[in-house]
Amino acid sequence: MTDAAILSASGLTKEFKGFVAVNKVDLAVERGTIHALIGPNGAGKTTCFNLLTKFLQPTAGKITYKGQDITGLTPADIARQGLVRSFQISAVFPNLTVLENVRIALQRRRGDSYDFWRSESVLHEYDDEARAHIQDVGLTEFSNERAAELSYGRKRALEIATTLALNPEMLLLDEPMAGMAQEDVERISALIKRISQNRTILMVEHNLSVVADLSDRITVLARGEVLAEGDYATVSKDPKVIEAYIGAGHA
């Protein structure tokens, strides 16, 4: 664990009724890098994300974010510290418009807005900023459409726009490009690269060419355990990694 780590976990473990999904994982994500978490299906990547953001309570282990122990925090409070996650299945607000989706994130600045006596027209102050985020992911022409009507790839793009609207210091992206068309993959890839300039990103991704292209460091997980860690060249040559992928039916 280096001092430069913005997020680190030690001995992170999660048991589901006797089944160990994540087993004594040590992880250190260096500030300002793009760190990829890869591994075959069922390796425990999503579970790791759930633990790191406290959507699940770890059975054992400790999580440190910006030098502070966050193991005891609630998921909402972790998000408020600037550590924001996305979900593997697209997580939009289907019956809100694209603009409203992004505004939900911007609106958080009002604090916990319990101002139920005010008209929602006060939210228009966020419209311009929301539109800028929407443009970043190429959804401008869909601004007033219900999120439910978007194609899968566009929903994912909207999700990223919403996450970025929080301007988080660190992002945890769970397969941000799954289900996207090739051109969208390129756009989002470029966007992730751009936003990583002043942020830290931990990303789960199955598309290995994206991983190779984007990530500074890779952690390989299999059966809940860390199998290997290093840059792409190192990791992709590791015999254990190759075996794990072939063993799980992946080339």
């Binding site: 959507f55 998921p75 924001v84 979900f87 929080l166």
Partner: peptide, 8 residues
């Protein structure tokens, strides 16, 4: 869950 992850 998404609302929680946005900090609400």
């Amino acid at each position: 869950p998404r609302s929680i992850s946005l900090g609400y």
